[in-house]
Amino acid sequence: MSKSVIVIGGGIAGMEASAYLSAMGFNVTLFEKDEKLGGHLLNWERLFPTKRLGSEVLTFLKKGMDDKIKVHTNSNITKINSENGKYFVTNDNNEIFEADALLITTGYDLFDARRKEEYGYGIYDNVITSAELETMFLSGKPIVNKQGKVPKRIGFVHCVGSRDRKVGNVYCSKVCCVTAVKQATEIREHLPECETYCFYMDLRMYGAKFEELYNEAQEKYGVTFIRGRLSEANETIDGSLLVKVEDTLVGRPLKMTVDLLVLMVGFEPSKGTKDIAKILNLSTNSNGFIEVADEHTLTNVTNLKGVFVAGTTTSPRTITNTINDARAAAAEIACYLNLYTIQSRNN
């Protein structure tokens, strides 16, 4: 009988790893807390840096999911026991599943922007998050503010909930800079009359084609980049927002009214990730994500034998990296279950 793997979390990493593991002949059971597989990808219209549709990637991921994979949606994990190298996973229907290895792909949650009170999210009508803007794009409806007006000026605030000791997150979330650039250009496509401004501390355009997107944003789309971190936003009488920022390159304070303020919210370990870490007693790192056995060489291995991780469960990362990481995790698990001699390196 072939060995079995339980994958917890049906986002990008969970789907891709399940696909590979099943293709390699393992019995795969995938748990997802929501109704549908796909995770955050379901809420994203277009992807950086290519602006291809997110749904295309989802279709690709779904194609990999063969019929042998047992998928349990709307299913939360309540208990995990281990005995003689086997894991027994209980879900909220009190069903018990057995596996030889676990893969945790519970991923991230977006930062709750209300925690940055001075930016006014949840207080002022026209302060929204990057995810909400994406939902607007996805809905296909015209882009308007809360008062139903077409915005003439939109500001994007980078690093909301990232690189900020005051909210307890010192790390960079990696995807927000390029997402802001992508969204600013998309706004210009939808609303050619609307001015777009990005307020950034550092622009981290490290990935393939990111810099090209940035160039395009400046040259073709006329997005304005202002180096300065927002200190606070204030609502004016007509519902627009007065933002205060230091234009650090000019060296003077700058005031600006915008009709819509988009907060580029960062990544935090998801509730699911935190819960599983607690259930299994998995080590977490100083940023709250799951700790891996070695940052360079054992990026899918945890402190527990037979428990593996992939994707944004261990740190913020892009979709490209997540897919790669999922495949790497599948290979790691295969080595572990098939007792390949290369495994001995890990100890």
């Binding site: 300065g228 971190r229 200190s231 920022v245 230091e246 650090t248 304070p253």
Partner: peptide, 23 residues
């Protein structure tokens, strides 16, 4: 300090005069 300028943007004195902490 990474010179992000948040201090200067929020500065009470900075509303009246050129006073720029990050600088």
């Amino acid at each position: 300090c990474i010179g992000c300028g948040t201090c200067s943007a929020t500065c009470t004195a900075g509303q009246f005069t050129q006073f720029d902490l990050h600088k």
